[in-house]
């Protein structure tokens, strides 16, 4: 499956803005960049739905709305069920000849809390039923909206308010759940991991997800300056580091067949380009406690997990 869609940066810049200015995301917000880029990939009329989370709150603070398209806010747990309902309603309207468009795309957005933890049953059900929608997980690795509580997406060793780093525990003791692999296991036609730093790759993947017939899942890393504790200007730099250290490799799985995307393929072919994970950790305040003598061993642990996951991914992509 290759998308026939070609675009230049100017094409994207001339497309009308779907997530309008004036939304109240923090300065340097990663998810806001992700949303803007994904909404540049649309091909016609769309309906968006959003689970409770940062981006739902900041984009629709009553009576203001930053959305120039039909948008529905749902509770934390049911964004995928909502998207499934929208898609089924559109199908029914089309059958009755009451839909004035040929096709309407449905996008479901959710954060890591609404996907990893609370929303997974609705997501799993919608994927199993095979509804035609794109599910976007913007992963800022904790419940940032309510004040940085740990989620299933928070990485090992990270500080959050509910996995505090003290003298005994070095941040979160558990590991990040491989959510995208769980979605591949559902046997859905398109799953991809993307980052806003490689925006061309992200926009192409979003388009592929919309074009595919059936559920598509997009896992996008979206740094949060408040929760990850770094300067607002570093958002894109950190995402790039996440890819270069293989903390967040970029890949896609079409009908269950894994393939690495260009930025990660380069690292697979030239392993000397892989940066130690320490460089990624030291720019973020949430890992600051790891750079003390008592917790230094956790950095090695993280490096081992990352290496193991990277090796496993290479095997899946037939590049080991």
């Amino acid at each position: 499956m290759a998308s026939k869609w070609k675009f230049t940066t100017k094409d994207l810049a001339e497309k009308p803005e779907i997530l309008m200015s004036g939304h109240r995301a923090c300065a340097g917000c990663g998810p806001a960049i992700v949303y803007r880029q994904i909404l540049k990939a649309t091909r016609g009329p769309i309906i968006a739905t959003n689970a409770t989370g940062c981006m739902e709150v900041v984009s629709t603070i009553y009576p203001y709305t930053a959305w120039s398209i039909p948008f529905i806010h749902t509770a934390f747990e049911n964004v995928a069920a909502n998207a499934a309902g929208i898609e089924t309603a559109l199908k029914a309207l089309k059958k009755k000849g009451q839909l004035k468009y040929d096709h309407v795309d449905v996008i479901a957005f959710a954060g890591d809390g609404g996907t990893y933890d609370i929303g997974i049953q609705a997501l799993s059900g919608a994927a199993e039923r095979g509804h035609d929608f794109l599910y976007v997980l913007y992963d800022n690795e904790a419940y940032m909206n309510t004040g940085i509580q740990r989620s299933g997406g928070t990485p090992h060793g990270a500080w959050t308010t509910t996995s505090p780093a003290g003298r005994v525990i070095p941040g979160k003791p558990e590991y990040k759940k491989p959510i995208a692999d769980i979605m591949v296991a559902h046997g859905i036609p398109y799953v991809a991991a993307a980052s806003p730093a490689h925006w061309r790759d992200l926009i192409t993947k979003a388009r592929k997800g919309l074009e595919v017939n059936g559920p598509a899942f997009l896992h996008v890393i979206a740094p949060c300056p408040r929760g990850w504790r770094y300067d607002t200007s570093k958002t894109i730099e950190i995402t790039r580091l996440a890819v270069d250290t293989c903390v967040f490799p970029l890949w896609e799985a079409i009908d269950g067949e894994y393939a690495l995307s260009a930025p990660s393929k380069v690292i697979a072919l030239k392993p000397e380009r892989k940066i130690p994970v320490k460089d990624y950790l030291k720019v973020q305040g949430r890992f600051r406690h790891l750079f003390t003598p008592e917790f230094e061993h956790v950095i090695d642990e993280i490096q081992q997990i990352i290496d193991r996951r990277w090796k496993r991914l290479l095997k899946k992509c037939d590049m080991a």
Binding site: K10, L19, A32
Partner: peptide
């Protein structure tokens, strides 16, 4: 005018006048 600033702005505050 590579427009990279446009792609990375979280607020749509970089404008492009065609």
């Amino acid at each position: 005018k590579c427009l990279i600033c446009y792609m990375f702005c979280p607020d749509g505050a970089v404008t492009w006048d065609p």
